[in-house]
Amino acid sequence: MTEILCLAVIFGILSCDTVLVGQFMYSRPLIAGPITGLCLGNPYAGFIAGLCVELIWVRMIPIGDSTPPDSTLTAVLAAAAAATAVSRLGIDNFAAVIPALAVSVPCGMVYKLAEIKLRATNTAIVDSIKVKIIRGDFTSVDRAVFYAIIRKFVFGALFFLASFMLVTSLPEGYWRVMDLTRGVEVTMRFIYILCFAQLFEMFLKWK
C-alpha cells in the first residue's frame, strides 16, 4: 500500500510536468514507465509498457485539449498494473503488459477528458485575477498559479489511485487472457511493428 501511495505522489508530480510546470518531459511514457516499474520492483515491465505507449501515441501532440488518451497515465497505470500482476500471479512480463495496456488506455482517455474539464475552470480563475488586479491586488496571479499546480497534483494523484484500484480488481482470468492465445511473443511483435510504423509516419509526415 505504501508503494502505491508513493506512486500516486509520483504520478501527481509527473502529471504537472505534461503541461503545467516546465514540460521537461520526464512525464513521457519512456521515462515514467520505468520509474513506475522501479518503484514496484519490476522496472522491466515498466520499460515494456513505457516503450509501447511512447511509440504508439508518438504522433499525438500536446496542443490545447487535443491529446486523448493521456500517455503519462496510460504508461504509469499499465506499468503499475503489470508489475502487480507479475508479482501476484507469477505471469510473464510480456503477458502482463498486454492486458495492462488494453485496460489502461480507456483510463487514460477518461483522465484526459476530466483534465480538460478541470482546465476549463481556469477561465473563471483568470477572470477573477483581472478583477483583483483592477482592485490593486498584484500578487493574485502568483497565488492562482500555485493553486493550479496543487490542484493538478491532487487531482492526478487521486485519479491514479482510483484507476489503479479499479484495474487491479479485475479477475485473475483477465490477466491470464494471453494464455488463451498461446502466443505472447507474436502479439508483442505485432505491437512492436505498430510502434515503428508510427515512428516512420511521424518523421516522414512532418516537414
Partner: peptide, 15 residues
C-alpha cells in the same frame, strides 16, 4: 517554466 500553468480556453497563455 510556469507559462502554461493557467492555460485556459479564453485567453490561453495570457495569465
Amino acid at each position: 517554466f510556469f507559462l502554461q500553468s493557467l492555460w485556459n480556453f479564453k485567453g490561453m497563455q495570457n495569465a
